[in-house]
Computed example of a mutant assay.
Amino acid sequence: MPPSIRILVYSDNALVRDQVRSALGTRVHPDLPELTYLDVATAPVVVSTIDGGGIDIAILDGEASPAGGMGLAKQLKDEVAVCPPILVLTGRPDDAWLANWSRAEAAVPHPIDPIRLCEAVAGLVRTLVT
């Protein structure tokens, strides 16, 4: 098992990035590795960082502007050879179909529910460590 899981958190809104980190904390489950974070506020930095490797999971804000997380997820899945699992924060529960279109492995709607977010991230982490 890796000592930690590196999570990229993308949103143009610093409050959303803070909410994600606060909701997840340093561990989503005692049996899973510690979480570390990289905050990113722009789409070009997301693409270059993911393309460079070293990110285990990406959490992308579907409501970010000017580049939304769902379009960015689709771009990453189409263009990056080894793309990590992606969780998209959708604008509302009914937008889950858009997250599916984007090829994201998970989706959680705004407003961020810490329990739902932790469950979704724990599921992604388990796929990485098994």
Rank of each mutant, 00 (worst) to 15 (best):
K77R: 14
I50K: 03
G71V: 06
C118M: 11
G54W: 08
L8M: 08
D94N: 11
G54V: 15
A14K: 11
L35H: 12
G91N: 08
D61H: 07
L72D: 02
V40A: 09
L24N: 06
L98Y: 01
R92M: 14
K74R: 15
T26K: 15
M70E: 05
W101M: 11
R17N: 05
R103M: 08
V47P: 07
H29M: 07
K77Y: 06
A99C: 03
P109D: 10
V45F: 11
L24K: 08
V125T: 08
L72T: 07
P30L: 06
L24F: 10
G52R: 02
D61G: 07
T26P: 10
A122M: 04
L8A: 10
A43D: 09
T42H: 12
D95H: 12
V20D: 05
V125W: 00
G71T: 11
A107M: 10
D78Y: 11
A99F: 06
I112T: 00
V28I: 12
T49P: 01
I57F: 08
V20A: 11
I59G: 03
D78N: 14
L89R: 09
D95G: 02
A41R: 10
W97Y: 14
P44F: 06
D18S: 15
G62L: 04
E63W: 00
S102G: 05
A122R: 07
Y37F: 15
R6N: 14
T90W: 08
I55T: 13
W97I: 11
T90L: 10
I59Y: 10
D18F: 13
T90F: 07
L89C: 11
V45C: 03
